[in-house]
Nucleic acid binder design. Structure first.
Length: 581
RNA sequence: UGCCGAGUGGUGUAACGGUAGCACAGCAGACUCUGGAUCUGUUUGUCAUGGUUCGAAUCCAUGCUCGGCAGCCA
């Protein structure tokens, strides 16, 4: 069960999905028991390629692939590409990449080798439609879109039959063929299922199953001028692929009778796939609709679909979130029919937990403050041994240069510290990580009264192996050697929105009203230890005492280091300080 | 007001007629060369009212609240 992508540290938790149970798995388990399909449990993940995948999709991916994995089945990745007006190849490619990245090392073996496309079934779907017409279960309707709305009625208003409802089979066949042949303009006619115009369920009031759209499709080109609607294409695609369990979100619950009706009319393998609905993921302080995410991208409010602040899979990846952390998160939130709002802290916890076991520790100073050790020999350089990962001894150690002039974190010094601040201040002692105990003798200021340099002395006996090396001091601080540190740019990310539900404002204000102006803080004068020289996006780092970081996949280069902060470390001082405000 | 669905601590969930448990968050403490990690303790809950039952979060009834459905989108 272990693999290259999983942490090797002792105590790593087992696959969080392995023993998972929820109401859907209960159903699948019961169905698997009866073996009524006579084939392995088969699920599918069917995104429409009209945007990038987000963490809500990740929930669905974990569910569908997780079930296939757990029950020894397979899961098909299928592009639900029946609406050429909205869909693009860029999205197809990103979806494939994101799914593979997310399940790699976990459920890659249950992913069917080929990617499926609903558009591959257009001809079959067309033939099924002819069958429906022959049975008198579908008809060509000449009503305009506006008329159709009127005729269909409303939730509390009954529908009335289309004047074209009782067209003869031959006429329907002829008109449908001519629709396909491109003889009619967009929207001129539809093919409608003949079900029950009086149904209390609007989706059963003779729904349109084909529309005329003279638009090129990203895969079938100009081959088609009519395209099947979701309700018609989806159930049949499931049937064609031998799906046993068709898992979708709650809003499709009212579509289920239609799903079942279509498969009950046609000569398709029995029993049909079973549709089961679950609640989509809602995460605090972000938005999860592709339409809104697209808006953020199009209006340049973020850097793109993979902006590290985006809840997209690509954004999370670039931010430095490991796929295993996303999977653990998805396992933790569970699967129900209750539509709640998940606390972002749960995601952050899953990320920290994963990264704590996985990330290499290094020292980096974000806001440098110069420190001179006045009793340390000028020109001397030591290589101090530092632990790469205290959670994983096999990660080994490295050597970090130490010298007379250092940079420490500006936030680690206060001239007039409040009572709970126990880092450095004039006259106070702290430990420099791995190096020894130092005492602040003087804070040098510039003309403006700003502290620009600290002059300190080191207790020589407190060095590693020294007689007082185990002295107790209140704080340990990170540092870099001024002459050896590498310059770097660091991007600090915060939540994208200032309110938990930006798209549910009681006053109806637009979600963009709540964009967090401080969601990105750019730090251009950072210093990192020399071992980071060849940092790559594939390596996760913990900058000690600061948080988890990774090299930016777009902008980080050997000569120009750029890091993204994935998530901060838990910080009880920051919390206390914020509370005191 | 039509149809469908959902209500368990602050949040996400478990308990499938038999002691309301877990995780996150919060709080308190221990430990610590990361104010990290780890460990310990702890506050807070079954939407309401009836009924069935020895026993109800669970079954029944009524009510309340919330969500979805009126694209030739998915």
């Amino acid at each position: 069960m272990t693999n290259a992508n999983e942490p090797t540290a002792a105590g790593a938790p087992a696959d969080p999905h392995s023993g998972a149970t929820d109401f859907i798995r209960d159903i699948v388990a019961a169905d698997a028991q009866t073996g009524k399909w006579g084939r392995p449990i088969t699920t599918r993940f069917p995104p429409e390629p009209n945007g990038y995948l987000h963490i809500g999709h990740a929930k669905s991916i974990c569910l569908n692939f997780g079930i296939a994995r757990q029950f020894g089945g397979v899961c098909n990745l299928r592009m639900d590409d029946t609406n050429p007006a909205k869909e693009e190849v860029e999205y197809v490619e990103s979806i494939i990449q994101d799914v593979r990245w997310l399940i790699d090392g976990w459920a890659d073996s249950v992913l069917a080798p080929q990617v499926y496309y609903a558009s591959d079934y257009f001809e079959k779907l067309y033939q099924y439609a002819i069958e429906l017409i022959r049975m008198g279960r579908a008809y060509v309707c000449d009503l305009t879109a506006e008329q159709l709305i009127e005729y269909r009625g409303a939730p509390d208003r009954p529908g009335k039959p289309s004047p074209y409802r009782d067209r003869g089979v031959e006429e329907n066949l002829n008109l449908f063929a001519r629709m396909r042949a491109g003889e009619f303009p967009d929207g001129a006619r539809t093919l409608r299922a003949k079900i029950d115009i009086g149904s209390p369920n609007i989706h059963m009031r003779d729904p349109a199953i084909y529309r005329i759209r003279r638009v090129d499709h990203h895969r079938t080109g100009s081959q088609w001028t009519i395209y099947p609607m979701y309700d018609y294409a989806h159930c049949l695609s499931d049937s064609i692929e031998g799906i046993t369990h068709s898992i979708c979100t709650l809003e499709f619950e009212v579509h289920r009778p239609l799903y079942e009706w279509i498969l009950a009319q046609l000569q398709v393998p029995q029993p049909p796939p079973r549709q089961i609905e679950f609640a989509r993921l809602n995460l605090g302080y972000t938005v999860m609709s592709k339409r809104k995410l697209l808006q953020l991208v199009d209006e340049g409010l973020v850097g793109g679909w993979d902006d590290p602040r985006m809840p997209t899979v690509a954004g999370l990846r670039r931010r430095g979130v490991p796929p295993a952390a996303i999977r653990t998160f998805c396992a933790r939130i569970g699967v129900t029919k209750y539509e709640g709002l998940t606390d972002i802290a749960l995601l952050e916890h899953s990320i920290r937990e994963d990264l704590n076991r996985r990330a290499r520790r290094v020292m980096a100073v974000l806001r440098p403050l110069k420190m001179v050790l006045v009793n340390y020999p000028e020109g001397q350089v030591e290589e101090i041994e530092a632990v790469n990962n205290p959670e994983d001894p096999s990660a080994g150690t490295r050597r970090v240069p130490f010298s007379r002039e250092l940079f420490i974190e500006r936030d680690d010094f206060m001239e007039h510290p409040p009572k709970d601040f126990y880092r450095l201040a004039p006259g106070r002692e702290v430990r420099l990580r791995y190096a020894g105990v130092i005492r602040c003798e003087e804070a040098v200021k510039n003309a403006a009264g700003e502290v620009v340099e600290l002059r300190c002395t080191m207790d020589p006996g407190s060095r590693a192996g020294g007689p007082t090396s185990h002295r107790k001091v209140k704080a340990t601080m990170h540092w870099v050697s001024a002459a050896h540190a590498l310059p770097a740019e660091v991007r600090l990310y915060d939540r994208l929105f200032t309110v938990p539900e930006p798209d549910a404002d009681p006053q109806g204000r637009d979600f963009k009203t709540f964009l967090n102006p401080h969601s990105l803080e750019l730090l251009t004068d950072c210093r990192v230890e020399p071992s980071l020289a060849g940092a790559s996006p594939e390596t996760y780092y913990q900058f000690e005492r600061l948080g988890y970081f990774c090299a930016d996949s777009r902008d980080c280069q050997p000569g120009k280091l750029v890091f993204n902060r994935t998530v901060t470390l838990r910080d009880s001082w920051a919390k206390a300080a914020a509370k005191a405000m």
